[in-house]
Amino acid sequence: MYRQKYIFLLPGLLVLVAIILFPLLFTIRVSFSSWDVYNPGLNWIGGENYARLWEDARYWEALTRLSVLTVGTVLLQYTLGFALALLVWRDIAARRFFRVLFLVPMMTTPVVMSVIWRTIFHESLGPLNPILDAIGIGAQPWLSQAGHAFAAVMIVEVWQWTPFMFLLLLAGLLSLPNEPFLAARIDGAGPIRTFLSVTFPMMGAISVGAILIRLIEASKLMETVYVLTSGGPGTSTETTSYYIYIRGMRDFQIGYSASLSLTYLIVMSVALTLIAKALIRLMVKDRT
């Protein structure tokens, strides 16, 4: 009966196979080969790539750096986004204007914005250093020193993606019922206590959602690094995806970069799952 129903499933299934299943399986197969620019082809070298990866300090450094960058930027984005959302949540003058204004960075193209930021950070031509000079902080070697370059990448990421947090958290705030706030006023709670006991707990679920979406996105961080610092100075701002890009697309070590990608996928899936569980336990209180 109704055997034709499978025909209707076919297009979706084909797309799934073509863009997810086949590339994944093919990558697994390639990661066990020594496919590179000299010897293209699917030979079998066993776990050699994985043994090499285990010893590859640059890869693990990039992964650690990415973790710090991801967690750091997402926490900053969350804090800033929440603060901005709280600011325009209640009745303030021109709140519609501010709500739109705060979203502008998100609507711009990341690569274009990175180019603009590279100009801003430029040590002799950019506008930032003269301003810092003028207010007495002094010019900073933004893109030529490891710590500063790392900070620069973080600033751009936070600038670009705080609006996303702001948007989700504002939507969350606007959907909250009014009664708990009235009750807190009647019970005599001040603004800080109201935030800690009423607003924040009620925002738990949406906060976890917003943080996870941003963590997943941020763990793929690549274009900002590519445009702003090209991983430099040295490898001090190199993230995992950028390193895989160098190995695969610049050095054409296809087999090796396949093993890097797979390891990256597995590490990220496990880490994000664990983080998600921890966040839910920590922040979502309305499970009965």
């Binding site: 019922p177 009664e179 009750a183 006991s197 707990p201 009620m202």
Partner: peptide
């Protein structure tokens, strides 16, 4: 120093 009970039960759910 008044108390008010609302139509929707209000509790602080984190407590």
């Amino acid at each position: 120093n008044v108390a008010q009970v609302f139509q929707v039960p209000v509790i602080y759910k984190s407590m």
